[in-house]
């Protein structure tokens, strides 16, 4: 059984990068993508992924709001925020909103793996 991942980012470039990172990790399948917060919530309900990577600054609805709504609806949601350098206060807000952890762009595959296994509690 592999973990299902939903990738949320308004930039297709970033989504592809993240997909590649998960593509290189055995046991993970990217099952959906969303390019804004509203779409993220819809896709979450539809796909019930095990893990979400969530960009913070996005059109229509921010990643923070999306994280809040998703974790309110599903207390077990595991959301990793993807932030740029210097967004510490936004990341803090997202963690308060219910996100599980964060990674900072530009991503390194090892860093992503480390955070993902921590969040999913895989040894």
């Amino acid at each position: 059984m592999s973990y299902k991942v939903l990738v949320v980012d308004d930039a297709a470039f970033m989504r592809n990068m993240i997909k590649d990172v998960f593509g290189s990790m055995p046991g993970f399948t990217v099952i959906g993508e969303a390019s804004n917060g509203i779409e993220a919530i819809e896709k979450y309900k539809e796909l019930r992924p095990d893990l979400v990577t969530m960009d913070i600054v996005m059109p229509l609805k921010s990643g923070i709001e999306a994280a809040r709504e998703i974790t309110n609806a599903d207390r077990e949601a595991r959301i990793i925020m993807c932030s740029a350098l210097g967004q510490e206060s936004l990341v803090m807000e997202a963690i308060d909103a219910g996100a599980s952890d964060f990674i900072v762009k530009p991503f390194k595959a090892e860093k992503v793996q480390e955070v993902v296994s921590r969040v999913l509690r895989i040894k």
Binding site: S83, L85, E88, V91, M92, I95, D101, F102, V104
Partner: peptide
Amino acid sequence: SPAPSVRAVLILR
């Protein structure tokens, strides 16, 4: 660490 205080909050959690 890009966000030390966030890491600290996560450790506390």
